[in-house]
Design a binder for these strands. Structure first.
Length: 204
DNA sequence: TCATTAAATGAAG
DNA sequence: CTTCATTTAATGA
């Protein structure tokens, strides 16, 4: 199964339309909840997370985005404000293209525009899948839902050799579970043969 | 080696 | 399932 790289535009084209490189330090905030959406971002190197905090101050991670992927783009087509924060998990290098330039790029490149549609469509699809799984009371279902999502996003497929590059705490924040529950459930799933754990790394 | 951070466990609610 | 306390492992200065 080939997954759509979502969204990865040739940097040359981005530069042609006025994109610039921008680097961030670890933990640096790229944008905050409530900010006006003004840029298309594409990661060259590093990882970022999209999160928000609930009323009790507990973090919920909506997504973690890595190299050759874009973010902040789903709101570029409408006049809205971000509903989550974008924060660097590692030092990150990325390309940033102003909203209007991005729209212009799409107008001039129908094929990229189409890919953008496919990209947004795919995100919608997985959001739906995740929503179903995450609404389950069973922690194993939530974990499996997340793992399937991560695995499908990452290309390359072999049984139980997809390494999950997340800490258990991050997994907990992505599923709305507690770390201890994540740890215990993962071990249970390992016993059931649903995944493997090698040197604390999760292989799914 | 010391300090920090992640992972794992046990007990109780 | 969560919370709290404690222990063990891993990482880095």
């Amino acid at each position: 199964m080939k997954t759509i790289s979502c969204m990865n535009i040739d940097p040359e084209i981005l530069y042609k339309f006025g994109a610039e490189n921008k680097s961030y330090n670890q933990d640096e905030i790229i944008y905050r909840e409530g900010d006006h959406a003004a840029f298309y971002y594409q990661i060259i190197k590093g990882k970022i997370k999209l999160n928000s905090y609930n009323e009790e101050g507990k973090e919920f991670i909506h997504n973690i985005i890595g190299e050759k992927q874009s973010f902040g783009d789903s709101l570029l087509f409408i006049e809205k404000f971000y509903v989550m924060n974008a924060i660097c998990l590692t030092a990150t290098e990325m390309i940033r293209l102003p909203k209007n330039n991005f729209l212009e790029l799409l107008q001039n490149n129908p094929q990229i525009s189409l890919e953008m549609n496919a990209c947004l469509s795919q995100r919608l699809y997985f959001k739906a899948i995740m929503l179903q799984n995450m609404s389950s009371q069973n922690p194993a279902v939530r974990l499996e839902g997340l793992l399937n999502y991560l695995k499908s996003y990452h290309d390359g497929d072999c049984e139980q050799c997809f390494p999950v590059e997340l800490t258990r705490q991050q997994i907990a924040n992505l599923t709305g579970l507690r770390v201890e529950t994540v740890i215990r459930t993962l071990k249970k799933m390992e016993k059931e043969g649903k995944l493997k754990i090698k040197d604390r790394k999760i292989l799914y």
